[in-house]
Design a protein around this nucleic acid. Sequence first.
DNA 1: TAGATTGTTAATCGATTAACAATC
DNA 2: TAGATTGTTAATCGATTAACAATC
Lengths: 216, 216
Amino acid sequence: MKDPVIKVTKFTLKRLPHYYRFVSTCLDKGLQFISSEEIAKGVQINAVQIRRDLMMFEAIGTPGVGYSVEELHSKLGEVLGLKNVNEAVIIGIGRLGRAIIDYPGFERYGLKIVGLFDSDPGVIATKINGKEIFAVDELEHIVGRLHIKIGIITVPDEWAQSVADTLIKSGVKAIWNFAPVDIRVPEDVVVRNEDLAAGLATLCHLFAGKSSDGFH
Amino acid sequence: MKDPVIKVTKFTLKRLPHYYRFVSTCLDKGLQFISSEEIAKGVQINAVQIRRDLMMFEAIGTPGVGYSVEELHSKLGEVLGLKNVNEAVIIGIGRLGRAIIDYPGFERYGLKIVGLFDSDPGVIATKINGKEIFAVDELEHIVGRLHIKIGIITVPDEWAQSVADTLIKSGVKAIWNFAPVDIRVPEDVVVRNEDLAAGLATLCHLFAGKSSDGFH
DNA sequence: TAGATTGTTAATCGATTAACAATC
DNA sequence: TAGATTGTTAATCGATTAACAATC
């Protein structure tokens, strides 16, 4: 019998990490149950929306009582694919790469960075947090042998696509790209282009809008 | 006469930075005109969608010819609020903070980080790229005096909200938060919570979905 | 003119919200 | 039972797509 793949819309999916984070803190506090209203306050999302989103697990809540914190936490983690530790490699050990390597939020999500790569002879063979940095030339070899499925790209724009291609050739199925270019991948590979500058542009626009509105 | 505030939906806004980036490269290549089809290929978004999005500037394109690269570039930059340089401060000079300080995509968007702050006596008064790091205690004073409107938060979770409060009190109107918590702000302040771990969670889910699908 | 491509209207699709019956 | 809160259905809202007339 195969696992029923839980279908979630793109939009629901975006909200899940927030629920997960909030529910995690509730768990830490030792709470037993929470209502959709309480979650709503915690994550600033409409309570109806939340109930709707949580409907993907059938009948996980108890009317009149709320949701079991523990169960909800566990289910959310499962849907988000955080149950098993995911091993990843990171390519590009500049400042951004280093920041990612010890970004605090990741452990909770079970991400384990097991391979560090760079092309700069000056950093190759040095260590970060006890992990050695390898030459990019070895990327294909190592990724293939360790059966790594996730690659994190923190190299300059002009290298990003070619690094991605190498990763894919080596069997990587999920790419998290921080270079400010849109990476092309085949159908069976998922990619997330995390363009920080785009986030900035969005913020600037909202800001510009607000400030001109202010004068009317 | 006041500037007509161009209304853009949340979704259009998310696509604009991509257009902007692509059009920038066309400009660099010296192209005169591009069609919505060409942009579509470049950014992997439906051409109709693009035309629809670009309708916010009235009649900027020429039927049968396309859009003037130069004009489009300039208009997009304007809408995104990138015309004037935006000065910002950053609080939290850890690895992430340092990565942000020299992330390559930002200059193009006119972001200028003019103040660096941290609470660690070990880094206060040291310099990065020639810019001195100040004590957080001076944040309110300096931000207020320089009339800074944008604050970037790269401190640990537990400090994020309080730093945000200080920023707001000092007159900051836009906050870009990298700490993995949702920051609360008053109505007249815009905030963008850039939770990297949430991005990871999204990627993991997509990945998990793909891999189980693969077996059917 | 003929060909290309825009701007716009109408049709479709999907997400959010409101209302409420079912359940503890 | 009465009160609370879920799960679900129906109504609304907004975004995307398709079709095409207008324009260069």
